[in-house]
């Protein structure tokens, strides 16, 4: 009895998912099929980007996109690439999870004659082999670091929150801070540096301990906004830290709110919308033959401070992330 029940349930589930799938993609021959392979829907920036891609692609009546979730796993991402070749998509947009791991699979796509756009991030070794749309991660860190050079007081004590070891974005942002800030400000001492894995809660624990261990902290240098927000969460009711300088990267909705409140000093805006708009346009141009040569497109990564925070607020109001 139990077995029959389970079997029926399984059949029901599978058949319903097929119905859903069929409903979402009406098969029309004159429509270009585009595969979008996201690094991980669980990563808030990646999912924002995926949502934006969907939105932008819908504006083109002759293109249709299928979103696939790589779940932060190279294996998943790679098999999605292979499946997309098999399913004969007209174009593939890939957000790599790990450039090295995806390279051979991207080359398979190229060999199969399917155009592929790499986005957020591009794989540097494959420039000239594929199309790409990206923001420069070094530049994202660098705009903040350049701004900080003049802002951080003499002989300041700072703490640094890093992303996961070996992560390309984190490494590039760290490098930017080293070259553009620490190299120019030898008077500054780092009193704490830890990996908080992009996470707000881990950053909070580190900051709590640093506050105990140090009399004074002048600035928090964080490789993303989540961790910066975590550090601010710890000291938000502590008047001693009213003048604390906090630098993030990404331009999340939370960062926008914190800058508006005057608590986060600056961030750089990696605009998922802009990425999506450029990706969709490039995809359309390739498919309709308007673009034939391989191109690498960059979006800007503007520095956001209290002066221009409305720009960021507007972008997030549009998605509904800020009311």
């Amino acid at each position: 009895m139990k077995k029959v029940l389970i079997l029926m349930l399984a059949v029901l589930l599978i058949s319903s998912s097929v119905v859903f799938a069929a409903g979402s993609s009406e098969q029309e021959d004159d429509v270009f099929k585009v595969a979008y392979i996201a690094r991980a829907q669980g990563d808030s920036f990646a999912s924002w980007l995926a949502n934006s891609i969907q939105q932008e692609m819908d504006k083109y009546p002759d293109m249709e996109v299928d979103i696939m979730d790589g779940q932060a796993s190279d294996e998943k991402v790679n098999s999605f690439i292979e499946n997309s070749i098999t399913n004969q998509y007209d174009l593939i947009i890939l957000q790599p999870n790990n450039g090295e791991a995806q390279t051979p699979y991207v080359l398979q796509v190229v060999a199969a004659g399917i155009p592929i756009i790499l986005t957020n991030p591009r794989i540097p070794d494959l420039m000239g082999t594929t199309y790409s749309v990206d923001a420069d991660p070094y530049e994202q860190g660098a705009v903040n670091a350049r701004y900080a050079v003049d802002l951080v007081p003499q002989n300041a004590k700072v703490v640094v929150l890093n992303g996961p070891a070996g992560n390309m974005h984190s490494t590039a942002r760290e490098l930017a801070w080293d070259k553009e800030f620490f190299a120019k400000r030898p008077d500054v001492t780092i009193v704490g540096e830890q990996i908080a894995h992009w996470n707000k809660d881990e950053a909070m624990s580190f900051m709590e301990d640093w506050v105990q261990a140090n009399d004074k902290i002048d600035a928090v240098i964080s490789m993303n906004d989540n961790m910066a927000a975590g550090a601010l969460e710890v000291v938000k009711d502590n008047p001693k830290y009213d003048d604390l300088l906090v630098f993030g990267v990404d331009g999340t909705a939370e960062a926008a709110l914190l800058i508006e409140e005057g608590r986060l000093t600056s961030t750089s805006f990696q605009n998922a919308y802009e990425l999506a708009i450029k990706n969709a346009k490039l995809a359309h141009d390739i498919l309709t033959g308007e673009v034939t040569d391989l191109v690498d497109t960059d979006i800007d990564c503007p520095l956001i401070t209290k002066e221009n925070v409305e720009l960021l607020m507007d972008a997030h109001r549009a998605t509904g992330a800020i009311q």
């Binding site: 829907q41 999340t252 709110l257």
Partner: peptide
């Protein structure tokens, strides 16, 4: 559960 929570939030953090 993880799929469910990503589905209902579309993977986006909730603030405010």
């Amino acid at each position: 559960a993880r799929g469910f929570v990503l589905l209902i939030t579309k993977g986006q953090n909730i603030y405010q």
